[in-house]
Design a protein around this nucleic acid. Structure first.
Lengths: 101, 101
DNA sequence: CTTTATATATAGGATGACCGATATCTTTAA
DNA sequence: TTAAAGATATCGGTCATCCTATATATAAAG
């Protein structure tokens, strides 16, 4: 996905999934499309679904069958974890954005 | 390093190293301390030096012995790669910061 | 002189993040 | 009826990122 930038740009997938779900509950394909909008590349099924499975196993998100799709949303403990993760992320990389503006 | 946030927060180490070196040439320990300032945890030698080695192998950074330490700096091609990486990073995660302010 | 701190480095191990390939099921279009 | 598209899912593989442990060399402190 992110190898065209010289240095490796992988990472933060589960963080980004949780961040997107904090804005709006979505099914898997919709999450993939939101990531594509931002990164330019759509995560493949073999990347996305294992990540969703792991977040579900950690009780950070839950999935509910609605019609033919499964709608994912944050659990209360996922919402709490995300708060701390956002703080960590901003503390770690905030100055990159400050300067890029 | 970043497992206390529910979801995994690893990644972007070589990107962050390059970003820091774009501000100022530094030796290894100084880079580690700058990362610690931001992330809260200092990358261990076993994390940092292999990353420096790889960036050097990819000709994105160079290291020059100065006295007792090795001072790292971006190569021209590293500076060019970083430009694109910063754009990718901002496009991918910009809205996280927008909202966090 | 010996301990402690600084700096660089490798080895071995774990895991998330990526891929392509493959599979199933349903819906929609031709 | 059949093909194409949408959605979910697993398997097998690669690699960067993280760790601890170990090692060497120099410099500063006791």
């Amino acid at each position: 996905m992110g190898y065209k930038y010289g240095c490796d740009m992988r990472g933060m997938l589960s963080f980004q999934i949780m961040w997107l779900l904090s804005k709006k509950s979505m099914h898997g394909e919709a999450i993939a499309k939101e990531i594509e909008k931002r990164r330019g590349d759509k995560p493949k099924a073999g990347t996305l679904y294992p990540a969703l499975k792991e977040l579900k196993g950690a009780n950070l998100i839950k999935g509910e069958q609605e019609g033919k799709t499964i709608v994912y949303s944050l659990t209360p403990s996922g919402r709490e974890a995300l708060k701390h993760a956002v703080m960590y992320f901003c503390r770690s990389f905030g100055d990159v954005f400050e300067e890029a503006k």
